[in-house]
Amino acid sequence: MSSFLTLVRKEIRDAAQSRWLVGFALSFGLLVLLFARVQSGGDVFAEGFNRTTAGLLNLALLAVPLLALLLGAAAVATEREQGTLATLLSQPIGAGELLLAKYAGLTLALWAAVALGFGLGGLLLALVAPLGALDRYLVFVGLAAGLASASASIGVLLSVLLRTRLRAMAAAVLVWLVLTLFYELAAIAVALTISASGRTLLLASLLDPVEAARILGILAVEPNLEVLGPLGAYLATELGTGVTAGLLASALVAWVAAPLVVAVAVFRRQDV
């Protein structure tokens, strides 16, 4: 087995032993069922995947980035603090290789947690609910996995830049607050103040992975762009649903790649 795969396997093993990840998977599975029950207004599972997907969207947009940011932030800083980073880097592996392997292992573990959480709930739901909107539900699961990848990438960058676990995790919480709460508030404030154009609103959406994932999630449930207000009107007129989805998905991919590229470049130049 190559050293890269050995490191990936170690990272997955560590993640599997993490109570955070297992707790997330199980609690999210339960939440899928709870949402289905609550949103059906007492008629258990009557609305099936469609309503459940929409209801879970906001919850997933909060929980998934927080978990991925925190685990990413701990990834390198913990190794540095306990001294194992020096032991690892004294082996015949490159600094970039180590960082990418840690990210890959962490992301695979996050995907597994997302798949387990949503998969378990979805499986139970599928046993009693109409299967008509299953494809949208699966898109939503994929979206959560993509958001986890982007958030983990930002977390790993924080872990490299801030060096201590406490600082990196504090910064991760701060970034999470900005991405999930402050950014949207700031965007609304700017839009109200300077009556921003549709193009500006689109740019604002692309610059926040959570916002990009939120719009993609909405599109998965309701392809009519008008539900997005002024931004939706602009997108419907100028781009259309397909191009919009492609653009937002590209933004998510960029949010995976860009922090990771910066993290690798910085990490290679750092002293251990």
């Binding site: 050293s3 306990q82 001294g83 194992t84 020096a86 032991t87 690892l88 004294s90 082996q91």
Partner: peptide
């Protein structure tokens, strides 16, 4: 290389530690 701290992953056993670093090489 033996570092001053002799830092190894605390959650691994003796055998797992040696096997992990052997696999890396």
């Amino acid at each position: 290389y033996l570092s001053q701290e002799a830092a190894l992953h605390p959650d691994l056993t003796v055998a797992e530690t040696a096997a992990f670093y052997a696999a890396l090489r």
